[in-house]
Design a protein around this nucleic acid. Structure first.
Lengths: 198, 198, 198, 198
DNA sequence: GATGAATGAGGATTCATTCAT
DNA sequence: GATGAATGAATCCTCATTCAT
């Protein structure tokens, strides 16, 4: 019995979205384990029964919430990045960094959390194992389309992504005393450009 | 009130250490929330009551276990790194990477987890907020001692640390399909060297 | 208050019958407690609301379903048995057994279940307490009509019924390892004949 | 982790037994599904946590309770029946019936319930599928030991058991209006003797 | 009349922690 | 000091039933 309701009407869709939004917010704020389904339901202004008519269990809320969030945000990012004309590597990188930080601003530690969940749980693993890769590949595609053809691009892009996400974390959540954000940003920017121009 | 025992006798000290070792292993393997105190006690061959005579609660075991582990491992790393004579940046970096990967091999996702816990929980935050910084500062001190005197070292070292840890994760836990570890490693190495030589 | 609809129109009557048929099938297959009303409604191709407009609650579906089924089947059985002409005890018994096994074939454990429900629940008890008795009495009437007049017929018929139902169970659901059905059947047949000929 | 406690000390054993006794009583009184674990715990004067330290889940309580009860009672019955000297079929049967009715007096519909559970649930099935057979075989062994050697004994004994249990049910739980218990008993007795003497 | 979304009481189970022995 | 039995709050989830549309 796959008794999970597939929302069709507008109000249903909105309700499902609300569960996901509030779930996402709570998962980011308190983590998966400290978030309980009753609180999600309460904050979404629905009963616990309604919540479970949209999602099979708590884990599915987690998966769907992060799936939607990541898909949405990464699409926005890629769209913005592909608009640039004419292409220059330095402005591309600058935009990449700015947009990324901006778009993922309210994620806090949520991405680190997700990575952990991916390695802790089989279902979550199965669902998200390809997610990051696809993002890398789309970035690579974009670079190639603009004439940037070189060896080991996958590894290079991966390195870049790690640095840019570290930058985001530093900004939005995890500030290290004594670290100057702007200097750090310049460094990351230079490093990324240097990686992609060799 | 504060009935947590401070072990004085040898057997006591050993017992406490065993709790921490086994706790650490379990926290790494299953994560904080899926690890339960009874299992720690069982594997440590002591009663749950005894466990609670050494630690106020589960969180304190977590904090102490990671505290000890990190202190121990980072000391080992720093010691090994300071032995090198004569100093050359490229061999220093190569060693740094090798030792780091080696020493932190069994951490799996535990460090990512710790970062998450730091942002989720006030107590853990309070305890570990300075930890990383101190490690950075010691690395910097080491570099300076060997004549490497330049601007923005804190930010540079931070960037290096992020890349090296990404490398470790890639090796021990979180492999991305299509990513060649050796190419990635070469890239990280080159990048770190380049960062520290400007 | 008593808002349960009494179906008058043809479509209504069909709908109610469908609920009862599907309810009966599910109760037999999974038992009362593992059968849920939503599944009944779904399989009957009506909404849960409609289901509840025909029946006050789940228990009433159960009662009505078994009531109708038992009435229907026992009538069929009695009709078939009364057709026999000329009457001979041995062929009557043989037919009784064959028809019974045949007609109640898809009941599985449902009758045992019903007996349990009768002793567990007051409403069900009230409804079915006389049911079996009436069946016994009709069998007795039939026997008497055919000249079989003797003492203690009620007790004898009861004993026969128990044996015949045991036979049915053995066939349709609950096979005991090492028990040969045909030998068992012969035994039951002989015993029933012997009981009714003294 | 098989974390179910195996009681060793006297108090533990008593407590486990109390859970089983009260569980058995409740399962008999209200059936498996209407009995809840909290009520078992309350009536046994223990906390719900303690209950779950003795049993993995509700089903295991059910299985263990019926296992113990049936083993205990059938052993008592077989012991009593094997004491008879010198052996005569008629007195054996008389005793069989009397002891059986007596010993299983407080079972009510519980055995019918168990048979249902056996066909509804795999675990329960696995556990009890051989139980009845073993009882039949022990009765057969007893009869053979006393010189009663004949064909189709398994089927005969099975038939006898069904009749005797019907008698017990009639006495303890499920009285049919108009049925005279003593006449019924005489009939069963005669039938059993007749079955076993051919 | 029909619908099916919404409700929430109820039940099973876990596990950090305490405390009597 | 050591033990581990006992506790019960907390959490996930189900499903009979209602009622607004």
């Amino acid at each position: 019995m796959n008794d999970v309701r597939e929302p069709i009407q507008k109000r249903s869709i909105e309700k499902k979205k609300k569960i996901l939004d509030i779930g996402f917010a709570l998962f980011c704020e308190k983590g998966y384990y400290k978030t309980n389904t009753i609180e999600i339901a309460k904050r979404a202004d629905i009963s616990i029964g309604t919540l479970y008519s949209y999602f099979k269990d708590k884990k599915q809320i987690y998966i769907a919430a992060f799936h939607d969030y990541l898909e949405d945000i990464s699409n926005q990012l890629l769209e913005k990045l592909s608009l640039q004309q004419p292409f220059s590597l330095s402005s591309f990188v600058e935009n990449w960094i700015c947009y990324y930080i901006d778009l993922y601003a309210d994620t806090g530690q949520a991405l680190a959390q997700l990575r952990m969940m991916i390695s802790e749980d089989t279902d979550i693993n199965r669902h998200f194992s390809n997610f990051e890769n696809e993002y890398f590949l789309k970035i690579i595609e974009l670079l190639k389309k603009n004439g940037l053809e070189q060896d080991d691009l996958f590894e290079k892009v991966y390195t870049c992504c790690i640095l840019i996400d570290a930058l985001r974390q530093e900004k939005s959540a995890f500030s290290h005393k004594g670290l100057d954000f702007n200097i750090f940003k310049n460094q990351v920017q230079k490093t990324v450009i240097s990686l992609l121009s060799t």
